[in-house]
Design a protein around this nucleic acid. Structure first.
Length: 413
DNA sequence: ATCCCGTTAC
DNA sequence: GTAACGGGAT
């Protein structure tokens, strides 16, 4: 708790507040509050006594203290390493999905040193299925960087956290405010939506003047609240559970009376909708070849899609390649080995959707005999059952792996 | 500006 | 089935 004193609460906020208000009201979108008057009140008075659940920040903080979910990483806020891991996992990923991954990860890598000395493959194995595998690479790089560049001493300020690999604006703000009490904002998608509704902001908040205004506002509120870490988490919690994107549950909102968006009658209108390009479709043959020396698998590039994960080799299912045998011989010609296909098992095609691609995977189990000269190397290997199951793979590849093993068992029987 | 993933809600 | 959701790097 001592580390929370690293940052003093900002001195008198009133001049800053009025200057801010003055600036904001000069723009097209104002700062008016339904009730008028002072919109924000410090939850402590000038002598540092708790003022309780009055005022804007006080009400939200009070609600947060009573309603905060009991999440694993909230039990160890005093350990920046654990907060760090949780923040990376929570990027673009929902809380419920993260919980089991977080617990397993911390069990295996309880400390900075434990993670730094783990192999990349082991880290990826703990990440498989969670998605955005670049995060795992960057987190691993980040902890090693922390030991190498800083001797394992965590930064205390947002600006220093920002230098850590894999830590962007949001994560830097979250680490500095939650672990060290620095009065800075931590602006994620929830915070953007909540602020947009509170102030009925219609301009985009992820770039340009809207972003500048939002980060200033988030920083000032964090300071005014008296507890930046709790405040930032409270705003996010509100966004995740009450001020939700589609149908905000304003009836349950502790700061409803302050919300300009709610007063407008249509708070949902202020959630920003991202338009996304239509996904491009790809049909792929995925070969699950079992040679006499083991399963033929390869490792993907450490950049790009499914970064650094293992997979069964595959080929695009081009036009005029509707027959598996044609595609296979073409693939085999490029991949060099000349093996006899002793057995074939066609799996059912299944779809896998990503942000801007949609794959139709057609798995094909192949038992290869003869002298399959598969050149094993760094990126291509022949592995036994046990080793295969230990390789980190994407969700669709895990599915193919499970199916292929069933095929293999059925064929030996 | 574009590329990463998987799950859940509708 | 389709849409919505969510940060950082390049």
């Amino acid at each position: 708790m001592e580390q929370r004193l690293a940052f003093k609460r900002p001195a008198p906020i009133v001049p800053a507040f009025w200057l801010f208000l003055f600036r904001m009201c000069g723009r097209g979108e104002g700062w008016g509050w339904p009730g008028g008057g002072v919109m924000c009140r410090d939850s402590r008075d000038s002598r540092g006594r708790v003022r309780g659940a009055r005022g804007f920040t006080g009400r939200l903080l009070c609600w947060y203290r009573e309603n905060a979910r009991d999440l694993p990483w909230r039990r160890s806020v005093e350990d920046p390493y654990r907060v760090w891991v949780s923040e990376i996992m929570l990027q673009q990923t929902r809380v419920e999905a993260v919980i089991p991954y977080y617990e397993r990860f911390i069990r295996s890598f309880p400390t900075l040193d434990a993670l730094a000395s783990a192999t990349r493959e082991d880290v990826l194995r703990h990440w498989q299925g969670l998605g955005y595998y670049r995060r795992a690479h960057l987190l691993h790089e980040g902890v090693r960087w922390m030991l190498r560049e800083r001797g394992g001493r965590y930064p205390r300020s947002r600006d220093e956290w920002r230098l850590v690999p894999g830590v962007g604006d949001y994560t830097a703000g979250a680490m500095a405010s939650i672990c060290y009490g620095e009065p800075v904002g931590a602006v994620d998608g929830n915070v953007r939506r909540v602020f947009a509704r509170w102030f009925a902001w219609e301009t985009p908040l992820d770039r340009g003047p809207g972003m500048v205004r939002l980060s200033r506002a988030a920083r000032l509120f964090a300071g005014w609240s008296g507890d930046p870490g709790a405040w930032n988490q409270a705003v996010m919690e509100l966004g995740a559970r009450v001020c939700v994107p589609a149908r905000p549950r304003c009836g349950e909102c502790p700061v409803r009376v302050y919300c300009r968006g709610e007063r407008s009658g249509n708070p949902a209108a202020f959630s920003r909708v991202r338009k996304r390009a239509l996904p491009v479709r790809h049909a792929m043959w995925v070969w699950a070849p079992l040679t006499e020396e083991g399963w033929w698998v390869r490792r993907r590039s450490v950049s790009g899609l499914w970064a650094g994960l293992w997979e069964f080799p595959g080929t695009p299912c081009e036009e005029g390649c509707a027959k598996w045998s044609l595609a296979w011989s073409r693939f085999q010609g490029e991949a060099a080995p000349r093996a006899t296909v002793a057995e074939v098992n066609m799996g059912e095609e299944f779809q896998h959707r990503l942000t801007h691609r949609e794959y139709g995977f057609r798995p094909v189990f192949l038992r290869l005999t003869g002298a399959p000269r598969v050149e094993a190397g760094a990126a291509t290997r022949l592995v036994g059952d046990e080793e295969l199951m230990a390789l980190p793979m994407s969700v669709p590849q895990q599915r193919i792996r499970a199916w292929a093993r069933v095929c293999a068992e059925a064929s030996t029987a």
